[in-house]
Design a protein around this nucleic acid. Structure first.
Length: 297
DNA sequence: AAGCGAACCTGGCTGC
DNA sequence: TGCAGCCAGGTTCGCT
């Protein structure tokens, strides 16, 4: 599920259930996800109050009264579900074969306000970690992380500086979390389409020889912000599962102009192009070869 | 050094 | 109906 808008949607859903509440019981149901859980994971959480829940790029960070931060990443298939009391969960969500817990419900947090937060992750590319608040910035997850695309740093100037002299394709540069952190396959495709930029154009083509941003660099910065903000507003995109913590669906997928639309007519008025799929560093790119010309950078 | 493919793991869909 | 093959929203590793 999760690029930045989906993670932000999850954060907003978890916030009322978790912030101000204490973990009364934590069930860790397997030793690892993508990585092993930290030592004594459940014990270090139990009794702690969640003081705030924030997001950095695609990471969720729960600040604990112990001074540690619970760091969570959803990988490809991670999702959270919030339930109150012993109520039945949303129909169609997760699979419940044994005692109300699904095969991929890996962590169950019970909170002092009566909420239960369940982490489910079929592919187990997600992970959780516990890090002292003071060491967050230098931790392995956040050291070297790129700028926050919804923050103030994203601008044509910043893009020009980050991409200058890079011959790697624009698509790859935008997916590189060390440059801009939070974009994923969907929103990169959508932003490149809206800007009219070819995904294989060299990233460095957004900067002039003197390192100044091109017109398209400015537009790309604005459009990245717009696309992400619109997607957050829509509750994210739901492709093969639910996006929100109450089981309801995000709906930004209805606003996709190119993603997963191979073979469809380009939505640009008067454009005769067909949405085309190509593979870049092992991942699908969708674009309109008519609207997105290399020469337009 | 950058850039690419493979790997991690499971499930869902397509096509034979 | 069954099964093989391909694909998936992310990240990391290791080989050119």
């Amino acid at each position: 599920m999760p690029e930045l808008p989906e993670v932000e949607t999850v954060r907003r859903g978890l916030e009322p259930a978790m912030v101000g509440a204490r973990f009364t019981k934590v069930a860790q149901r397997r030793p690892d996800l993508r990585f092993p859980f930290p030592e004594r994971f459940a014990q270090r959480l139990e009794g702690q109050e969640v003081q705030s829940l924030s997001r950095r790029a695609k990471y969720l960070l729960a600040d604990l009264s112990s001074g540690e931060v619970l760091v969570m990443h959803l990988g490809m298939s991670g999702r959270f579900l919030v339930t109150q009391g012993g109520k039945t969960r949303a129909p169609g969500e997760f699979h419940y074969e044994h005692g109300g817990l699904g095969a991929h419900d890996h962590v169950v947090f019970e909170l002092s306000n009566g909420a239960t937060v369940t982490y489910n992750d079929a592919r187990r590319f997600g992970f959780m970690d516990l890090i002292p608040r003071s060491g967050i910035e230098t931790s392995k997850h956040f050291a070297g992380m790129g700028i926050e695309p919804l923050g103030n740093e994203l601008s044509g100037e910043t893009i020009a500086r980050l991409f200058q002299d890079k011959r790697t394709p624009l698509k790859a540069a935008l997916l590189d979390q060390r440059l801009i952190a939070g974009l994923g396959n969907i929103y990169v495709c959508e932003a490149l389409f809206r800007t009219g930029l070819h995904p294989e154009a060299p990233a460095g083509s957004l900067a002039t020889k003197t390192g100044k941003p091109t017109e398209k660099a400015h537009r790309l910065a604005d459009i990245i912000r717009d696309v992400l903000a619109e997607a957050v507003e829509a509750g994210g995109s739901t492709l093969r599962d639910h996006a929100q913590v109450d089981g309801s669906l995000g709906y930004f997928q209805h606003s996709f102009k190119v993603y997963d639309r191979e073979g469809e007519a380009c939505v640009t008025p008067q454009c005769t192009g067909t949405v085309t799929r190509l593979v870049q560093s092992g991942r699908s790119t969708f674009y309109c070869p008519v609207c997105q010309k290399r020469s337009r950078a």
